[in-house]
């Protein structure tokens, strides 16, 4: 029962790549694949985040729950996450989520002893696993100033106040809680194709052409200084706002400018929280999507049951 294959062969072109940012073109596929990738990147690529907090002492101004929530939202480096186990299907620890396969332990101890306010930041979190630590934005590749980087603020303590706690970080996905989402933003847009009807444009005065150029809220068009013609300078700045189209209509020249989205061509922008690299985020998303597809394959017994049904059916008809 092999059917004909209708497989497509998408192509990719990376335009810009930084640790926490990627911009690439995806072509020769359709919006359903682009959107599936986007959805998986946001909600289903796993990371590690603090999930359980045991507070020993907390005499700060923030209550225990508030601090636990703030700890959960701190991004942790999660290269390990893909190979880690979810604590709910970890058999090494009966799912209490406290073994090395499915969890990482953190400790935090801070006490303010002098009159100056003490800032407790993510840097004070001591990890049991050197590969899982709060994301350090002061890494050399980052543009943030080292002197200014003091980690992510958790709470401020005044003289005599103290915070002591133990936290368990676990693997999870953004669908469960947004703290596990590795994506800050993931967007894609159709690549626009912009046509200018030169014959119609000829008939317009320079003033009218200027008004066409200026009607777009983003800088898509410009006027060639030499020839005085309207040219497209940056098609991707177009936001599908239709302002230019409306302007053309008001000039009594519908069809002067036409914009068509290329429906098999997408421009992706991926920003990571720092938990995993942006490039790794895309690759992990493809892997996760493949796993999901594997999971929705029909099981053997479903196929068998149907074959039996067919035989029975043929028998009934025949008899």
């Amino acid at each position: 029962m092999e059917g004909r294959s209708y497989q497509r062969f998408p192509t990719v072109k990376i335009r810009e790549l930084k640790n926490d940012y990627a911009k690439f073109e995806l072509r020769d596929t359709d919006a359903s694949i682009a959107n599936a990738l986007r959805r998986v990147m946001i909600a289903e690529v796993p990371t590690i985040a603090i999930d359980l907090v045991e507070i020993e002492v907390n005499s700060s101004v923030l209550n225990d729950e508030f601090i636990a929530h703030r700890l959960g939202l701190i991004p942790l480096t999660s290269e390990r996450a893909m190979s880690m186990r979810f604590s709910r299907d970890c058999d090494a620890c009966d799912g209490d989520g406290q073994c090395e396969y499915c969890s990482v332990e953190f400790h935090l101890r801070a006490k303010c002893l002098n009159d100056q306010t003490l800032d407790v930041t993510s840097r004070e979190l001591i990890s049991s696993d050197p590969s899982v630590v709060p994301v350090d934005f002061a890494s050399p590749s980052s543009e943030y100033d080292n002197a200014e980087n003091r980690g992510i603020m958790i709470v401020k303590l005044r003289r005599g106040q103290e915070l002591r706690l133990r936290a368990i970080a676990r693997k999870g996905i953004g669908k469960d809680h947004a703290k596990w989402s590795p994506a800050a933003t993931v967007t894609f847009m159709y690549e626009p194709e912009i046509y200018i009807n030169e014959d119609m444009m000829e008939k317009l005065t320079l003033e009218q052409r200027m008004s066409v150029v200026e009607s777009s809220p983003t800088k898509v068009f410009d006027i060639d200084a030499k020839t005085g013609r309207v040219v497209v300078v940056d098609p991707e700045a177009y936001t599908y706002d239709d302002e230019v189209i409306k302007k053309c209509e008001s000039l009594n020249a519908p069809g002067l400018v036409e914009v068509h989205p290329k429906e098999d061509s997408f421009i992706f922008t991926v920003e990571s929280t720092g938990a995993i690299k942006a490039s790794q985020l895309v690759l992990n998303a493809i892997d996760i999507l493949k796993q999901k597809l594997d999971a929705v394959r029909l099981s053997e017994d479903t196929v068998e049951a149907d074959e039996q049904f067919l035989e029975l059916d043929a028998h009934m008809r025949g008899g």
């Binding site: 990719v12 999507l289 493949k290």
Partner: peptide, 8 residues
């Protein structure tokens, strides 16, 4: 599945 292999 094959399309995603190719994409990867």
């Amino acid at each position: 599945d094959k399309e995603l292999d190719h994409l990867k």
